[in-house]
Design a protein around this nucleic acid. Structure first.
Length: 836
RNA sequence: GCCCGGAUGGCGGAACUGGUAGACGCAAGGGACUUAAAAUCCCUCGGUUCUUGUAACUGUGCGAGUUCGAUUCUCGCUCCGGGCACCA
């Protein structure tokens, strides 16, 4: 046993971390290139918005990522692990207004500061691939892709009612409206009519939906959320002829089987036909009044409450093409113009909304789909929305709902008044923003030529004033020098587009840019072919719809433009939980923010990393606990002392092979055998934890157990001496297994224990199945399912022997008494249950 | 309302395909070392009861069920978190 009294060494994390960070930077340890001979692994964490300083969410996200990156490197993979900045966005403009700093300056300064913070965490990035989306060398390629999409008809301009946030003075995509409020500033969103640019994401709706099935490596929850967001419904689009009028009303329904139950028609207040229907009739006034009222109500009403159902009769009728019924046409406040056709065939017996409406305005309720318990229109208190057998539906009577749907659609198609139709909840993506700090949309508006794309050789359209010395950062529509141009086609005076792109555009393809960050094209196709798809993507679940849907969409766009050869960007997705404190999300307003910077200064990066990995599994929320950090720090100190007090056991051996081959399992003493076994069990356990679900918390507790056992076996109070080879193997294993989590610490001790190779590429150990085997185990003896005794037995004991032993146990016989044994269940190596 | 999660000691969390509930850590209590403190080390630690034991009973949100045996499977609830929300 080694016990040289030496000066007590302190775990000087500051010096250790500075030393290795400098070393990694100088030797570019994490720089990678395509290497066809090696298997690649692309690990990506969601890049941060450069808000000023890193927060706990970043620490957690990037700690998790770094463990995986380092682990995979030790597994022999060629690991791409890049970092960059999602650098466009409103906070830069707000900061500019508040502090009089140009958004570009503010952003680049934040990036510099945060880059140092990330380096201080010891994260193993290939910094040569760093990108910032606000840099013209990044967004120029986005502009080029925009032009190419325009050419393909996947980008278009239209005037629509948009969600407008007054505070941010910009349009929001529907995905960015949360509970009727702006996702960023929480202001109530108001409708506004204006022109904007749109990406035809709806063209890809089916593929985005179908390919969700390929995403086996994604959390089921995220897949479901996207599926619901796309919201595909299949049904029938059907024309109802308006009585005494040329016009038809087209409806969409997912329940063609209920079409014989139609008793009225509901139109959205914005429906274009309403005007024609009421013009010059006695109903014109009341209907107009109703529409006006409803529009005001809609604007005022918070989106989270449903207003009561109202409607008004237009005085007109349309004809149900199936049975020739005259159907009264109403305008109703609950019909949405944005979904389907803005017109709904109302079937009160089978739709709850229609039912409420019908009861209110005394309209007939006509059940046509009968469940097992027959519906009666007089006694019904709610609509029956389930399936059933058709009744009162002409030749379709008697069919099931499923059969009837098919038959009725076929009938409509044959007669030519309807057809099978699919509707999506997903809308096209409006990408225009009336802001300064974003990618300029590369278009010139000419009175003669229309919207003309800026020619390729004139790209990028650079944000005016964004280069030092910095100039104006007013929204572009206020910058005359910027928008006054001549038309590239005809040379006449023209106006440059002043909208910038939604910042979600930049983050939709950055993972591709990393594969060839300085390429003279949007994507380095060859490099992308090697590196993509991303093998593991890690980020917050708050991006489950927005970012992840857009990124999937862009992948398909870039594929169809010939840049990428993949359908899906992220093979595996890990959504990490939030970091919370005192049960609530950390936020300035709650005053419960913990600054990682202070912690790193006080305990070092390794301790902070260790705690954030240890406190909870990645997908769960992590409750921050200052005392827990202290505990992680203590653990590292304990390991530090342990290594130092046994450093001499490394001296006599060759550092590379470690002399593990000298260990012969059957020649080991009892103590040695136990420690050797524990060492290999720990290897197995840690490897399993990482491989199956990245549960680093259990991996770490496994190593802690090993450390505890080493201390018990080789510490001051040890009863039996422990062999040098076994001890050395155990100590080395601790360092190797812990390296991905606390890299500076382990590398330093690795060096101290006589090794000079970097742990970065040290082979990850395999457990020896022989070493892991227990030769004795504890078997539980139950009587009627209750634990009554425990037996120490040889691992290879036979079933009969163990039964006999169990029945002979004094505590067991006491419980059995004189009752007859009915049955004995033996689970090998685990337990015996005696049923009496 | 609909769709997903989740609920285990004082706390964070363990427990493989049904088989020893509470690993590991934190906190707490006791002790050693010290003039003292810090640091470190050792012991105890779900609850109740007593006869203080290798004790009994009880215990994984609640109530049933399946099973020799349920934190784990089934059914019905409660509460908490997330998503969607008049989607025809």
């Amino acid at each position: 046993m080694s016990k040289t009294t030496q000066e007590p060494l302190k775990y000087d994390f500051k010096a250790i971390e500075a030393k290795w960070q400098q070393h990694w930077q100088e030797t570019k340890s994490y720089k990678v290139n395509e290497d066809q001979g090696r298997e690649k692994y692309y690990l990506l964490e969601m890049f941060p918005y450069p808000s000023g300083r890193i927060h706990m969410g970043h620490v957690r996200n990037y700690s998790i990522g770094d463990v995986i990156a380092r682990y995979k490197r030790m597994r022999g993979f060629n690991v791409l692990h890049p970092m960059g900045w999602d650098a466009f966005g409103l906070p830069a403009e707000n900061a500019a207004l508040k502090h009089g700093v140009h958004p570009a300056q503010w952003t680049y300064e934040n990036i510099s500061y945060m880059r140092e913070q990330l380096k201080a965490m010891g994260l193993s990035y290939d910094w040569d691939r760093e990108i910032a989306t606000c840099h013209p060398e990044y967004y120029r390629w986005e502009q080029q892709v925009f032009q190419q999409l325009l050419k393909k008809g996947l980008v278009y301009r239209k005037k629509t009612t948009v969600n407008w946030c007054d505070d941010c003075a910009t349009v929001l995509a529907r995905e960015q409206v949360i509970d009727g409020c702006c996702w960023r500033c929480d202001q109530q969103v108001v409708p506004k009519n204006m022109y904007g640019w749109f990406l035809k994401i709806t063209d890809y709706a089916d593929e985005l939906l179908d390919d969700l099935d390929q995403l086996g490596g994604w959390p089921e929850k995220v897949v479901t959320m996207q599926r619901n967001w796309i919201g595909k419904s299949q049904g029938l689009a059907c024309d109802f002829q308006v009585e005494n009028e040329e016009e038809k009303i087209t409806i969409f329904t997912t329940r063609p089987d209920t079409i014989y139950g139609v008793t009225f028609m509901s139109l959205a207040v914005e429906h274009p036909l309403v005007d024609t229907l009421i013009a010059g009739t006695e109903h014109e006034q009341p209907v107009r009044q109703f529409i006006e009222q409803t529009l005001v109500e809609k604007q005022r009403m918070a989106m989270d409450q449903e207003p009561e159902k109202h409607g008004v009769f237009t005085g007109r009728y349309c004809i149900n093409p199936f049975n020739g019924d005259r159907v009264p046409i109403y305008v109703a406040n609950f019909v949405l113009m944005e979904y389907g056709t803005g017109a709904v065939m109302a079937v009160p017996a089978h739709d709850q909304r229609d039912f409420e409406f019908a009861r209110k305005y005394d309209l007939p309720v006509r059940p046509v789909v009968q469940p097992e318990e027959k519906l009666d229109n007089n006694s019904m208190e709610a609509a029956w929305e389930g399936d059933g057998i058709l009744a009162d539906s002409a030749e379709f009577s008697g069919l099931t709902s499923a059969e009837a749907k098919k038959a009725i659609i076929a009938h409509a198609e044959q007669k030519g008044f309807g057809k099978r139709h699919i509707t999506y909840r997903l809308r096209d993506w409006g990408v225009s923003r009336q802001r300064y700090w974003g990618t300029p949309i590369p278009i010139i508006h000419c009175d003669a030529c229309g919207a003309v794309p800026v020619p390729d050789d004139q790209l990028p359209v650079v944000l005016p004033g964004s280069q030092p010395p910095y100039g104006s950062h007013a929204p572009l529509h206020q910058q005359e020098a910027f928008y006054t141009v001549t038309c590239p086609k005809c040379g006449q005076a023209a106006k440059r587009e002043t909208d910038t792109m939604d910042t979600f555009m930049e983050s939709s393809w950055y993972f591709g840019r990393y594969t060839g960050p300085r390429a003279d094209a949007p994507i380095d196709t060859e490099a992308a072919k090697y590196w993509l798809a991303v093998d593991q993507y890690i980020g917050g679940v708050e991006h489950a719809i927005l970012h992840l849907l857009y990124a999937r969409f862009f992948t398909k766009l870039l594929r169809d433009l010939g840049y990428l050869g993949i359908d899906e960007p992220f093979n595996n997705l890990l959504t990490q939980g939030m970091v919370i404190k005192d049960g609530a999300k950390m936020s300035k307003s709650k005053g419960n923010v913990v600054d990682p910077h202070d912690l790193i200064t006080r305990y070092g990066a390794d301790t902070v990393r260790l705690f954030s990995l240890f406190a909870a599994p990645p997908e769960r929320d992590l409750e921050w606990n200052a005392q827990g950090v202290e505990g992680s720090f203590r653990f590292l100190n304990r390991v530090f002392r342990l290594m130092h007090s046994h450093s001499d056991c490394f001296a006599a051996f060759d550092g590379e092979t470690g002399g593990a081959a000298l260990i012969q399992v059957d020649e080991l003493s009892q103590t040695d055998r136990q420690l050797h076994r524990k060492t290999h069990q720990t290897i197995q356990r840690v490897t399993d934890s990482i491989e199956t679900n990245f549960h680093f918390n259990t991996a770490i507790s496994g190593v802690m157990e090993l450390v505890n056992q080493i201390t018990a076996a080789a510490g001051d109070g040890a009863k039996q001496p422990v062999g040098q080879a076994v001890l050395r193997e155990a100590l080395q294993t601790v360092l190797i297994l812990l390296f991905p989590m606390v890299p500076h610490f382990c590398q330093e001790l690795w060096e101290l224990t006589g090794h000079n190779d970097p742990l970065d590429h040290h082979r990850w150990p395999e457990h020896d199945p022989e070493a892991v085997k227990e030769d004795e185990l504890t078997v539980v003896v139950q009587v009627n399912g209750k634990v009554r005794s425990r037996l120490q037995v040889a691992a290879d004991i036979g079933e009969e022997d163990i039964k006999r032993k169990a029945l002979g146990d004094e505590r067991v016989t006491n419980f059995i008494g004189d009752k007859a044994v009915k049955k004995i269940i033996v689970v090998k190596g685990k337990l015996v249950n005696i049923v009496v």
